[in-house]
Every structure is written in C-alpha cells, then in structure tokens.
C-alpha cells in the first residue's frame, strides 16, 4: 500500500529539475504501445481463436519441436561465436592503427545493409558442393550448404556487427592510465587483461550478444536459401510459421510465433539480468 502511494506521488508532486518528464514518458508509452505492444498482442489474440488443444498440437508438432532446437540452439551458438570474434575485431579496431583500418571499420556494417536474401544466396552458392569454398570443404568431408552448419554460418554473418558496435565505444573509453596502474602494480599482460580490461567490457559484450541473438532468432531471408529446409533436419521456426501462413492457417502461425516470442523474451531477460549484475559497480 505504501509503495503504491509513493509511486503515485512520484508522478504527481515531486518537483522535477529536467523538464518534459510527463510529456516524454507519455509519448514513449504511446509510441511503444502503437509500434510494439499492439502488434504483439495481436499475435496472442489471433491465436486465441484456437482451442487450447489445437494450440498445443500445433506448437508441439514434432517438426515444430525440432525447428525450435534448430532456431534457438543455432541462434545462441551463433551469437556466442559472434561474441568472441566480434570482441576480437573490436579489440583490433580500437587498440591498433594500421593502413586500411577505416575501410575495415566500414566493412563491419555491411551485413546490416545487404538485403538478407542476397546474403543467403551468396553464402549458399559459395558453400555449395560446387561453390568456390564448398568444393574444398567437400574434400574434407564437410557439408555446409543445406545443413544446420549452413544455417549457423548465415546467422553468424548477419549478427557480426552487433558485438563489434557495442564493445567498440566502451573499449575506446577505457582509460590507458588504468592499464598502466595495473602494470606498475606488478600485473603481467594476462592479469591486466582479465582482471582490469575485461570486466568493464562484459556488459557491452552481453548486450551485443543479446542483440545478435534476437536478430538471429527472427532471421528468415538469409537462412532460407542456405538451410535446405529438410523436415526434422534443417527447418527453422520462422519457416514453420511461413508454412502455416501458406496454408491460410493464420491462427496456427500466430501460435508458433507466440512460443517464439515468449522463449526469446525469457532468454533476453536472462541476458539482461546477467548484464545488469555484471555492471553493478556502476551504480551509486
């Protein structure tokens, strides 16, 4: 009761130094409702035209179940791989200067700009058994196109920029003196890296991984060309939704979409909690 009371008071009588709180919060809520909440709520409303049994049957169909594994598993794996390599790329871009650095820096964003279908077709033909890269991988017994490995590759491709762009500015802001302080206190390179440089980079790294994951889960265009889309093997969940749509089963499509949303939301929530825990020292 009391907390509710102080919550109300926060809105009513507390004098605010920074003006425009009411207006900007109101606008934010309105905008989010219009752009995000209403469409998302629509998904659940539409799927509620089905009975619980029908919903359950739809979302636990073996093909759909397998697609969850592919979509969430590979997205998580891809975002972790992007976490590692994105970190390395950001590190190189910030800490060293070399000819062509600007060009490399601009190259990072290309996966954002490229239409995903173009990326998918390009990757697919490169890694197909007859493709420029695929023919050599074939010799090693490695099949990429039309397998889950191909899906992973596409997801890594489209998620590359996220970690680089979240880690880069924080790395740039790291104080060189902090590193020097660690060195003069007797720390060696590894100790300086893991104890002093790395901890402040974990929150942005987690943010980048979360963004890359969110993007990967929802990715359709680039994956669909390289996946091969074989039932129980290389089908992703967005494809399951599209298949339902093509059969005019809109409610069933939204039911699967609802599952994706809830699971994605839970995973993102976990990453966010982890992130806020790892940056707890920044709070006053």
């Amino acid at each position: 009761m009391k907390s509710q009371f102080s919550f109300l008071r926060f809105f009513k009588s507390q004098p605010q130094v920074i003006p425009g709180f009411g207006l900007s919060l109101g606008f934010t809520l309105f905008y989010l409702a219009l752009i995000v909440l209403i469409p998302l709520a629509g998904i659940f409303i539409k799927s509620s035209s089905l009975s619980w049994e029908e919903i359950w049957m739809t979302v636990t169909h073996p093909r759909v179940l397998h697609s969850y594994k592919i979509s969430f598993g590979l997205s998580l794996l891809a975002s972790l791989i992007n976490g590692f390599f994105g970190f390395v790329i950001a590190w190189v871009l910030v800490r060293y200067s070399f000819p062509g650095k600007r060009i490399l820096d601009a190259l990072i964003d290309l996966p954002f700009a490229l239409p995903t279908a173009v990326a998918g077709i390009t990757l697919c033909s490169l890694y197909a058994p007859s493709g420029w890269i695929g023919r050599y991988l074939e010799l090693l017994g490695l099949k990429v196109s039309y397998t889950p490995l191909g899906i992973l590759l596409a997801l890594i491709f489209i998620g590359t920029p996220f970690v680089v762009r979240t880690v880069q500015p924080v790395l740039e802001d790291l104080d060189q003196e902090v590193e020097e302080a660690a060195i003069s206190l007797g720390a060696d390179r590894l100790q300086t890296f893991f104890r002093v440089l790395m901890p402040p980079l974990i929150p942005p790294l987690l943010t980048g991984i979360a963004l890359a994951f969110a993007r990967a889960v929802g990715e359709y265009g680039s994956v669909i060309f390289i996946a091969g889309n074989m039932p129980m093997k290389s089908e992703i969940t967005p494809l399951m939704i599209v298949i339902q749509l093509e059969q005019y089963e809109y409610a069933k499509a939204t039911a699967i979409a609802g599952v994706m949303l809830v699971v994605s939301f839970l995973i993102l929530l976990c990453i966010n909690l982890l992130q806020s825990w790892s940056s707890r020292y920044q709070r006053n």
Binding site: D175, E177, V178, E180, A181, A182, I183, S184, L185, G186, A187, D188, R195, V196, P199, P200, Y281, Q282
Partner: peptide, 22 residues
C-alpha cells in the same frame, strides 16, 4: 627493466582506480 618489475608505486592525477573492484 619493465615497469611491472621496478617495484614502483605510481599515483595518477585522475586516480586510475579499477572501477569494477571494491
């Protein structure tokens, strides 16, 4: 001799504390 081996205590103008540590 490397800085880490000189046994020198260095204090910086802007503190250079490790903000993520207590």
């Amino acid at each position: 001799l490397a800085a880490a081996k000189r046994k020198v205590g260095f204090v910086f103008q802007h503190y250079a504390l490790f903000n993520h540590m207590s």
